[in-house]
Design a protein around this nucleic acid. Sequence first.
DNA 1: TACGTTCCTGAAAACCTTTTCGGCGAGCCG
DNA 2: CGGCTCGCCGAAAAGGTTTTCAGGAACGTA
Lengths: 334, 334
Amino acid sequence: MVRATLRDVARLAGVSVATASKALNGQPQVRASTRERVMLAASQLDFSPNALAQGLITQRTGTVGLLTSDLEGRFSIPILMGAEDAFGTDQTSVFLCDARGDGIRERHHLRALLSRRVDGLIVVGARPDSRPSLGRDLPVPVIYAYAPSEDPRDLSLVSDNEGGGRLAVDHLIRCGRRKIAHITGDASYGAAQDRARGALARLTEEGLEVAGGEVWFGMWSEAWGRGATRMLLERCPDVDAVFAGSDEIARGVLDVLHEERLDVPGRVAVVGYDNWNILVANARPPLTTVDMNLEQLGRVAAQRLFAAIGGTLGSGVEKFPGKLVTRESTAPLR
Amino acid sequence: MVRATLRDVARLAGVSVATASKALNGQPQVRASTRERVMLAASQLDFSPNALAQGLITQRTGTVGLLTSDLEGRFSIPILMGAEDAFGTDQTSVFLCDARGDGIRERHHLRALLSRRVDGLIVVGARPDSRPSLGRDLPVPVIYAYAPSEDPRDLSLVSDNEGGGRLAVDHLIRCGRRKIAHITGDASYGAAQDRARGALARLTEEGLEVAGGEVWFGMWSEAWGRGATRMLLERCPDVDAVFAGSDEIARGVLDVLHEERLDVPGRVAVVGYDNWNILVANARPPLTTVDMNLEQLGRVAAQRLFAAIGGTLGSGVEKFPGKLVTRESTAPLR
DNA sequence: TACGTTCCTGAAAACCTTTTCGGCGAGCCG
DNA sequence: CGGCTCGCCGAAAAGGTTTTCAGGAACGTA
């Protein structure tokens, strides 16, 4: 299949390429009848403009680079989807690059993207701790999503984990719970710390202590959720709510509560974190959880980037609130 | 930051652009000392060639389009990763487009990709049933992955579900199991039918009938896995193995077996399907499962596409065998 | 008739690179 | 010393589009 160029369209319509270009781009200085002839010719030839030539001359390619560090991770995908649909299909296309967490590979990708003249970049981190900046002297705007840049002059969009922890505990308090425990993941994750801080702050406001006397840091796994819950029940048998630092952990918690014949939510309420559908929907009972609104984060990242192209970008770290999604694992205490 | 062009490099090196180009591209007809001067100039200016201009003239952009229908789905991602790393980072960049299962949107994306002059396309379906062809008169090669094209003249790469079902049952038989049940998902999925067919074929070879008298089609959910298992245990209490059509279903199966205090794998062995890490690793016990080798499928898709660029593509449906990943949910019967 | 306006069209430059081909100088042979 | 080859370099065309600017036609006015 041979592709038609603007020349072919112009020839068929009996005009010059200049006029054909103007006609197709809606420039005003072309007679209506001429425009029609050109449009007709274009559709007859199934003409579609060569984006390379366009980009070469306009200095705008209508492409952005999405640089991620963990494709398999569940966090980049929603962000990526948000970004993908914020850029309309006709306007902007997205280059996807997975650096696999490797700095060298990241530099390679960066170089390739710049040589393709992307209009902007979104960098999606693998975990919500800060990461090295790509540098300040790039010829295109860059937005960091999920994982903030170490350089405060960059613009980063992150999830508000402290707010999320607060949200979860607040909900449990409103359900009348007073003995609230917090089982969460690896203490070296900023996210774990932040969520715990938010949770504790809300407890303190209410004049409560965390059940079990401490936050249970451990691992982001069901097994840890199970183990921690067993220890928790031993130390504090009258616990009436557990805020889990992830849905995985929450699944483990539910599992043990189920084994121990402790009714959820009648006896103990459970809140997870992430709203990871496969886990929460299949849980018994379906899990109340905190959704980080990552698609929204992705959408906003795309919009900000779009606005910044040509102009200039803000800086600093912008936090996005999560939202609580209630399901059957929480309910008011009768 | 201002970008250097080849002109700038040439000027700095004191040669013409033609020579500069040849020097940087390793063409033989340039003196070593000259080449060195050019390379030095290029690195001083941090020159990186404009890929648009290159593409315009060479008619090769070094980009491919990845057209998927469900980004959130767990099947496109591994394929995407495989493809991503088969194309080296310097060589090829990938445009990611999610059509959200919408045909109109797909046409839009297709048009955009063609106008960007991608060198080829990979189409990743959402479910493993055949999907409409993009058409035969495209100016670039197209490979369908996971979901085959309806048009047999297209080239499709799919997972061998029948072989996978056979694999699972074969393993159970080798473990000495004789009462093997099959609980699987929606019967309208070709994948469910194929896996069941493979499973039954292997049973028949062994002179066995499926335990419970029939294949239990239902839904791709844990809840169905639980429900079906309860019914199964009622109808056939001496079942000694369950082959589940997905890891989700398998989780439900394990859950009920656990409730009923039936030891896994001592009393009943369980095999899942998909090797979905979050589910299998956290299962109690960790789940033996069939891995569809999707990354490999993605890699091969990329390689085939690469080979086809310029040349011509094969046609028909090529099936990729899965592999059994054994964990603790299966073991020989003592 | 001469001239100024308004509308539309087209020639040409520009974007940046690759590739072809002609030419220049040097070295070699007769 | 003439002519040849060989090695290296540069001028120019090509790729497809957008945009500027000049100019032509038609029309109205003085």
